[in-house]
């Protein structure tokens, strides 16, 4: 119990720092910006960690992360096409890209029979590689838009908020709350499936249907997130492990704490990325640099 209270307190501290710390003095406009950034950080970090936990549970594989299913590369592909064709990043195209790749992955995974669960990872990894190559071709052909694609690939929370992405952000928040609440009910199934599919099947869990639900939910959530803030790395992979180290393997605890820890971690990382240099760093750089040593420390304990 005390651990839970501790991380809630740290979460609140992260929010406070996110609002108060920055390169300039606080006033009403800056407050608006910081609040938006904090909201984005909470939901992006939370969703990525939550989906990481979900997928690691579904596949029983500790190396799975939200981007394994191809949503990040799909979003990057959609966005790059947008830059290439229209000269501007369109979050909507990014979202369509990630959904499109999600469907492709599902279709490929379904081609031969067998367990959907097993084939999804392979199909996802393959599609990720394909999309990355396509993005690189676009980068080579495009040339000058390199910087924008780079920030999309690394993740950046300080985006300009205007009419288009305000809609997407509200959609993200609404869909996140809905789906998180919905998927939370499956915590017991996740506990069982992560141990192996034979036990799960024996206990009457419809693995096909479960895989489908989880896959599409996370594709939707991650796709939306990446379209807005880019592919922030590391959060979805490591935070579920941190959560398990602190709270044990059961998903009834871990789904929620992953969300909270993911949000906290991303908020801290973003605050740091704001103040390290005059030039704004993509937050993905900070999450990687800071995350690894912290994880090693926690693992050694």
């Amino acid at each position: 119990m005390t651990k839970t209270i501790a991380i809630i307190i740290i979460f609140l501290i992260a929010i406070a720092l996110g609002i108060l710390v920055g390169p300039t003095r606080l006033d009403s406009e800056i407050l608006q910006l910081r609040l938006s950034r904090v909201v984005l950080g909470i939901f992006a970090g939370g969703i990525l960690a939550f989906c990481g936990c979900l997928l690691q549970g579904l596949f029983g594989n500790p190396l799975v992360e939200p981007y394994t299913l191809g949503s990040a590369s799909g979003a990057a592909l959609g966005a790059s096409l947008g830059i290439f064709l229209f000269g501007a990043i369109s979050p909507i195209l990014a979202f369509l890209g990630s959904l499109g790749v999600g469907f492709f992955v599902y279709t490929i995974a379904r081609i031969e029979g067998g367990l959907l669960r097993d084939r999804l990872i392979l199909a996802g990894v393959v599609m990720s590689f394909l999309c990355s190559s396509l993005v690189m071709i676009i980068m080579v052909l495009g040339g000058r838009e390199l910087y924008e694609i780079l920030y999309l690939l690394m993740g950046y929370l300080g985006i300009i908020i205007n009419a288009t992405n305000r809609v997407m952000i509200i959609a993200l928040i609404a869909i996140s709350i809905g789906l998180v609440a919905f998927l939370y009910r499956y915590h017991r199934e996740l506990d069982i499936i992560s141990q192996g599919t034979e036990t799960a099947a024996g206990l009457g869990i419809d693995i096909q249907k479960f895989s489908l639900v989880v896959f599409f939910s996370s594709a939707l959530l991650v796709g939306l997130t990446v379209s807005i803030v880019g592919a922030i790395g590391f959060v979805g992979l490591i935070i579920p492990h941190v959560s398990k180290l602190l709270f044990g393997p059961k998903h009834i605890r871990n789904l929620g704490t992953s969300f909270l820890l993911g949000a906290t971690f991303l908020l801290f990382a973003d605050t740091l990325s704001r103040v390290i240099t005059v030039y704004e760093l993509p937050v993905g750089v900070v999450t990687s640099l800071v995350g690894v040593p912290f994880f090693i420390y926690l693992y050694k304990r």
Partner: peptide, 9 residues
């Protein structure tokens, strides 16, 4: 590359 806050300030 700069941040929005700096431009606003």
């Amino acid at each position: 590359v700069v941040g929005q806050e700096t431009v606003i300030r």
